[in-house]
């Protein structure tokens, strides 16, 4: 198990280095001339030159990349071009908000998705199964910005239960009524797509396991249904779900970007969009890198968990 973890860690570091190269290339090499991109096509030659000097764009790309990566690892993420604020403070503050939103969504959709999937599998082909299956299929087809707007239309405008905007102050304290009230609708929005995927995945893997010989043996031994499901079926049926939850973190991040923009929630996704609209390179680079690091670590964690649950994987 230890060598498995060490190998995975090695891969993670390699992937992160290559990803940083990709992000650097996408932001600083691909657009052609960065100074023109940031200052616009009509900037004077003088302004462009000053900007290049200030940003160190006259140096070779290798030096620029090395310098950027080195400062990033050291925690110096530069200064935002549009707000002149320290990028690190900005990113970490918004990251906290997004993490809170994601956490609320996560504790809603993971258990609920598993329960719905298992129930649908046990009651296969009953009306419960059909309701769950058709419902989850419908939600898979709805992007976050649609479910979000539908939720706003119903729960904010029609019923007036929750506010339609989640534009809280970026440094708002959580665990007070004002903030939590504004987390419900965006968290629900992010949850629905992932909930549907997890329910579908859990259902199909549970159905598969229920048909196995050893499950029949367990029943024939005279074990109670709850014991068979809890002890024998779920252990194996939930394995693929672990992977779906991990892949789902990628969707979660995508969902955060869309949902935060829709609700005006001050999270890292909205910060990224802000950076892109203002062509604020240090901000885009830092936000992207932070998200990639988190995403990669989540995948690593899922890999380790999967290896722990399924020992066969470790020896591949």
């Amino acid at each position: 198990m230890l060598s498995f973890i060490v190998r995975r860690l090695g891969f993670m570091v390699l992937t992160l280095i290559l990803a940083s190269l990709l992000i650097f290339a996408a932001t600083q090499i691909l657009p052609g001339d960065v100074a023109t991109m940031v200052l616009g096509r009509f900037a004077t030659e003088q302004a462009l030159d000053n900007f290049r000097g200030e940003m160190g764009l006259n140096r070779s790309l290798v030096v620029q990349y090395g310098d950027w990566l080195f400062s990033f690892v050291q925690g110096d993420w530069g200064e935002s071009l549009s707000t002149r604020a320290d990028v690190r403070d900005l990113v970490l503050e918004r990251l906290r908000n997004s993490a809170m939103l994601a956490l609320v969504a996560f504790v809603m959709y993971v258990p609920l998705g598993i329960v719905l999937g298992v129930v649908a599998a046990i009651r296969r082909n009953s009306w419960v199964d059909h309701v769950i299956s058709v419902g989850s299929l419908a939600f898979i087809g709805l992007p976050e910005f649609v479910t979000g707007l539908l939720l706003i239309a119903v729960f904010a405008l029609r019923l007036d239960w929750f506010p339609s905007s989640s534009a809280i102050p970026p440094d708002a304290a959580f665990f007070d009524r004002h903030t939590l009230e504004r987390l419900v609708l965006p968290a629900l929005t992010i949850s629905l797509v992932s909930l549907a995927y997890i329910a579908r995945m859990t259902r199909s893997s549970t159905v598969e396991v229920l048909g196995m010989d050893y499950v029949r043996t367990a029943y024939l031994k005279g074990l109670s249904r709850s014991r068979v499901i809890g002890r024998h079926v779920l252990r194996n049926a939930l394995l693929p779900t672990v992977t779906v939850v991990a892949i789902g973190i990628g969707w979660l991040i995508g969902g955060l970007i869309v949902t935060e923009s829709l609700f005006g929630f001050p999270g890292i996704g909205r910060l990224l969009l802000f950076g892109i609209q203002r062509r604020d390179l240090p901000l885009i680079q830092a936000t992207t890198m932070v998200i990639v690091v988190i995403f990669t670590m989540a995948n690593l964690l899922a890999d380790i968990l999967y290896g722990y649950l399924n020992p066969r994987i470790r020896f591949r």
Binding site: T15, L16, A19, L22, I23, A26, T27, L30, P31, M37, G250, W251, I253, G254, I257, V258, L272, L273, G275, I276, R279, I284, T288, I291, V292, F295, T296, N299
Partner: peptide, 15 residues
């Protein structure tokens, strides 16, 4: 290793 919407946004944002 980069979530797809994120990569799409960064690429389209710069080019």
């Amino acid at each position: 290793s980069i979530p797809s919407l994120l990569l799409a946004l960064v690429l389209l944002g710069t080019v």
